[in-house]
C-alpha cells in the first residue's frame, strides 16, 4: 500500500505544443498579410472612403424598385429551373454512389469522386464558362446552377440512402422483386422526405447564388450591380441589396417551414 502514499502532484502537460501552434498561426497570418498587402495603414486610409460610400447609400432610391423587379423575378425563375435540373440529374448519381445500392467499389468510388470534383468548382466559375459557350443571358446561369446543385443534392441524398433501414430491402429481395421494384418500394419511401428537403435546401442556396451570377453576365439581378456601381449610383445599389435580402429572407423562411413539416 506504499504506492498510494507516494502519489505525487501530477506534472502539468508540456506547453510546447501550444507555443508551437501559436507561432505557426502567427507566421501564417504574417505571411498572408504580406502576400495580400493588407496593412492597418491601408484600412485606416480607406476609412473616409467607406463612410462616404455608406453615406451615399442612405437613403436608398426607392423609385428604382420598378426597374429591378423584372430582374428579380428572373433570378427566382433561374433558381427554380436550376434546382429542378439538379434534382433530376442527382437521382441516378445518388443511387450509383450509395454503397448499399451498388455493391461494386469500382462503380461508387468513381461516381463519388466525380461528385466531389463538381463541388470544388464554384458556381460563378461554372457560370462564366457557360456564358462563354451560350452567350449572355439566364440560360448559362440555369445550367451552372443545375450542375452545382447536382453535386449538393446527390451527396446529401446518397448519404441518406446509405442510412436507410435494411429490413425492407431484404424483404423485397426475398419476394423476388426486380431492381426497379426494389428501389421503388423499399428505397424511395424511406428517402423521399429527405430528398425533397435537400432539394429545398439547395433551392435556398441557388436563390443566393442566382442573385450574383449576373456579375459574369449570366442573367438575373446581379447584372444591375455592374450597371449601377459603374456610374457610382450607390443609392440604387442599396435598393438592389435591400430587395435581394428581402427576397432571400422570405424564401428562406418559407423553405425552412416546409422542410420542418417534411421531416
Amino acid at each position: 500500500m506504499n504506492q498510494v502514499n507516494e502519489q505525487k502532484i501530477p506534472k502539468a502537460p508540456s506547453k510546447w505544443k501550444h507555443y508551437f501552434t501559436f507561432i505557426l498561426i502567427l507566421l501564417l497570418l504574417w505571411g498572408s498579410a504580406y502576400q495580400t498587402d493588407s496593412t492597418f495603414k491601408e484600412l485606416i486610409e480607406g476609412f473616409p472612403n467607406m463612410f462616404s460610400v455608406l453615406d451615399q447609400m442612405i437613403p436608398p432610391n426607392w423609385a428604382y424598385f420598378d426597374n429591378i423587379i423584372g430582374a428579380m423575378l428572373d433570378t427566382i425563375r433561374m433558381a427554380v429551373l436550376g434546382t429542378t435540373i439538379g434534382a433530376v440529374i442527382a437521382i441516378p448519381f445518388a443511387i450509383f454512389s450509395a454503397s448499399n445500392m451498388i455493391k461494386s467499389t469500382w462503380v461508387y468510388y468513381p461516381v463519388r469522386f466525380l461528385l466531389n470534383l463538381v463541388r470544388t468548382i464554384p458556381e460563378l466559375l461554372l457560370a462564366a464558362i457557360f456564358v462563354a459557350i451560350f452567350g449572355l443571358g439566364p440560360l448559362p446561369g440555369i445550367f451552372a446552377l443545375g450542375i452545382f446543385s447536382t453535386g449538393i443534392i446527390a451527396k446529401l441524398t446518397y448519404e441518406a440512402i446509405e442510412g436507410i433501414d435494411k429490413g425492407p430491402l431484404e424483404s423485397m429481395t426475398a419476394v423476388g422483386a426486380n431492381k426497379i421494384q426494389w428501389i421503388m418500394f423499399s428505397v424511395v419511401p424511406q428517402v423521399a422526405a429527405y430528398y425533397v428537403s435537400y432539394v429545398l435546401y439547395s433551392f435556398e442556396i441557388n436563390v443566393r447564388a442566382a442573385a450574383i451570377l449576373g456579375l459574369v453576365g449570366a442573367g438575373g439581378i446581379g447584372e444591375y450591380y455592374d450597371r449601377t456601381l459603374g456610374f457610382l449610383e450607390y443609392d440604387k445599389v442599396s435598393t438592389i441589396i435591400i430587395f435581394t435580402l428581402l427576397v432571400v429572407l422570405i424564401i428562406d423562411y418559407i423553405s425552412t417551414k416546409l422542410r420542418e413539416n417534411l421531416l
Partner: peptide, 21 residues
C-alpha cells in the same frame, strides 16, 4: 449571412481600391 460576399467585395473595391485587400 444573407448579404452576398461578392457584393461586399464590390463595395470594398470602391472603398479601398481593387486588389486582394
Amino acid at each position: 449571412r444573407t448579404f452576398p460576399e461578392l457584393v461586399m467585395a464590390l463595395l470594398f473595391i470602391k472603398m479601398v481600391g481593387p486588389g486582394s485587400f
